[in-house]
């Protein structure tokens, strides 16, 4: 095992372990905070795959934006008077069986098709410049549409969340 492999397993363990807490924890606040570690673990995986810009974006947007939104949601949708920030699960056994079959199928397909696929030696050092160029040339239309989508989502969210109309 080289350093790359060890680092991969460390990040994979962080990601999957905290994702398990998100999925199985009875306490919503615990789930929200372990989602933080899941996002950090995924950012580490991005770094291993030489996606430096995406790793930073992941931390900025997911940890800085989405996770804070989630925590706001948790705090605002639980009455502070009854400190019961717990939530149950339902249909745990059928769902567990169905999802394990799904996981087995996915893993089987991935393993049998790409078992021997080696990652090539990378030719690119920093991706930010290249990604910016691609967004401004071949992906210009999706880029513009994404900006409109963000604007609409922003206005829509503000309008929906406003209390008195």
């Amino acid at each position: 095992m080289e350093l790359f492999d060890i680092v991969f397993y460390v990040f994979a363990l962080i990601t999957l372990g905290s994702a398990c807490v998100v999925v199985f924890s009875k306490n919503i606040v615990h789930a929200a905070f372990s989602l933080l570690f899941t996002f950090f673990g995924v950012a580490g995986i991005y770094v291993l795959l030489r996606a430096d810009f995406l790793a930073v974006t992941q931390i900025l947007i997911y940890v800085g934006g989405i996770l804070v939104l989630m925590l706001f949601g948790v705090m605002l949708t639980n009455k502070v008077i009854n400190v019961k920030i717990k939530t149950g699960t339902m249909q745990a056994w059928p769902a567990g069986i169905a999802v394990s079959i799904l996981a087995g199928l996915l893993a089987g397909v991935f393993y049998s098709n790409w078992k021997d696929a080696q990652l090539p030696a990378s030719t690119v050092d920093a991706t930010t410049h290249l990604l910016g160029e691609m967004l401004m040339t071949s992906y210009l239309l999706p880029f513009e549409i994404a900006s409109v989508v963000l604007l609409v989502a922003l206005i829509g969210a503000a309008l929906i969340a406003r209390r008195n109309r």
């Binding site: 492999d5 994979a12 893993a107 078992k115």
Partner: peptide, 11 residues
């Protein structure tokens, strides 16, 4: 132990 493409896919 040898991390290839499929390890990321399995994760």
């Amino acid at each position: 132990p040898q991390v290839h493409l499929a390890h990321f896919l399995l994760l």
